[in-house]
């Protein structure tokens, strides 16, 4: 049994798979066994799957206390399954936050929100920013505490897919990538481990300053266009997993974040150019 912290959430993992435990230790480092073992929010297991199936193809099954939300994965993909399963746990439970489907990073005490839309290249972009001096707050969930308006970090491994794996390897020799899981349901996947700073500062909340809706277009030069606030409202609320569920709190949170951030849509064709454009985003007045 292993207990570890993922941002504000504590996880208790039971699994007979030693490789999986090693990967969790590799990825979450100092946040493993950092919590008291008596009380955990997410009680999960990754098991071996039924014997009959095991004989032909080893499997891994993700379970929470009372449910098995996914079909079994091939055993080799257990880590990807666990990460996916924790996404599930967070999305179904953590309604104390407006959960944006966004990457979030911090620079000089200000947070940048990068909402994911299909084709945004969000994970690649988040990985590149995290390797260029920005602090990774999250890749999958932008957790906006609707009581305070602050972003809660939830640093996780960033899953890179297919070509992105090589792009990030080339982008930075420091990129600390885990094993490549070939042919998962999303193609080849490798995880970039969050760095020490991201992990150790995972309880430092940050005020959002910029919202940028990125769109990758091959060959395009970088262009940032200001986004009218009412459109930013509509796009951000559609981007959130639980906007409707949390009712007026969601409305107020989106209104506030859109009102206090500078909002942009960005088109880009290369990492270097979008990175320097994001670096040049003016800091908010103190």
């Amino acid at each position: 049994m292993l207990t570890y912290r993922v941002g504000p959430f504590s996880v208790r993992l039971r699994t007979p798979l030693h490789d999986l435990i090693q990967l969790v230790r590799w990825c979450y480092g100092t946040n493993v066994d950092a919590e008291p073992r008596d009380l955990a929010l997410f009680n999960v297991a990754v098991e071996k799957g039924s014997l009959s199936r095991r004989l032909f193809a080893p499997q891994a099954v993700f379970r929470t206390d009372s449910e098995t939300p996914f079909q079994p994965f091939p055993r080799d993909h257990a880590f990807a399954l666990l990460e996916w399963g924790l996404n599930w746990c967070i999305a179904t439970r953590a309604h104390q936050y407006l959960m944006l489907h966004s990457a979030a990073l911090e620079r000089d005490g200000h947070a940048l929100i990068l909402p994911a839309i299909p084709g945004s290249g969000k994970s690649t972009l988040a990985a590149a920013l995290a390797l260029s001096g920005w602090r990774l707050l999250s890749d999958e969930f932008g957790l906006l505490d609707w009581k305070t308006g602050l972003l809660q970090p939830v640093p996780r491994a960033i899953p890179l897919k297919n070509d992105s794996i090589e792009i990030i390897r080339r982008f930075s020799p420091q990129a600390d990538l885990g094993p490549v899981f070939p042919r998962t349901r999303k193609g080849d996947v490798a995880h970039l481990r969050p760095d020490k700073q991201a992990l150790s500062r995972d309880m430092e909340t940050v005020r959002p300053a910029w919202i940028v809706f990125p769109r990758y277009r091959a060959g395009s030069s970088v262009r940032l266009t200001p986004l009218p606030r009412h459109l930013a409202f509509v796009r951000l609320s559609q981007n959130a997993f639980n906007y409707r569920l949390i009712g007026v709190a969601g409305f107020a949170a989106v209104e506030h974040v859109v009102d206090t951030c500078s909002c942009w849509s960005a088109e880009y064709g290369g990492l270097d150019s979008i990175l320097s454009a994001l670096d040049r985003l003016p800091s908010p007045a103190p």
């Binding site: 504000p8 504590s10 009380l39 929010l41 439970r93 953590a94 309604h95 104390q96 639980n242 409707r244 569920l245 949390i246 009712g247 709190a249």
Partner: peptide, 21 residues
Amino acid sequence: CPALVGHDLDAQRCFARYKQS
């Protein structure tokens, strides 16, 4: 309640509010 439990239980209330609307 321990903070973790308080936040978690509180968060489950929104299902009720949403459903009632």
